[in-house]
Amino acid sequence: MIKSIKIPEDIKLLEDLRAGDIVQLSGIILTGRDAAHKRMMDFLDRNIPLPFNLAGQGIYYTGPCPAAPGKIIGSCGPTTSSRMDSYTPRLLDLGLKFMIGKGLRSREVIGAMIRNKAVYLAAAGGAGALIAGCVKKAEMLAFEDLGPEAVYRLEVENMPLITAIDSLGNNLFEIGPKQYRL
């Protein structure tokens, strides 16, 4: 069964998702990857407030292609989440509720997810053109100088996702491959 979730309205439902649940996500998400995370840490280290609020929000790890004329956004599939692992627990403790990306997460991230009842959703890596079709609006939110690594505010519709790690720490990257190992 596919669970349709709208952000911010259904944000509380995220913590009830279980690893393996299929999700269609609509609503508001922020983007951010390596350089934006590093910048956020610099802000936090210097006690400067972030130019956007992370509490109750989700970050999609992506660095889109530039939008061609007449297009909302360029190709925008997920990037490897583990490169954000060293930054993520701090953001979760600030109230970040979900992350969208691809690939594994560290034990520290999973611990912080359990502590903060957050969830990690997997998008299909390499499906950048398909996911671009789910983006209905894209606006630059912060760190414009970072180019493809800037933070955007996206409005998405029916973005196809799979619950990879849930708020209890169940991890589909462990459970799934075990079932098919020969």
């Binding site: 660095g63 190709s75 299909a124 390499g126 053109a129 671009a132 079709g133 196809p160």
Partner: peptide
């Protein structure tokens, strides 16, 4: 299925297959 759909989406909508070009 999504990866196969992505190949079509890329051709039809004239978007790079993956944002990591």
């Amino acid at each position: 299925d999504q990866l196969l759909e992505n190949i079509n989406a890329s051709r039809e909508n004239q978007l790079p297959l993956c944002q990591d070009t």
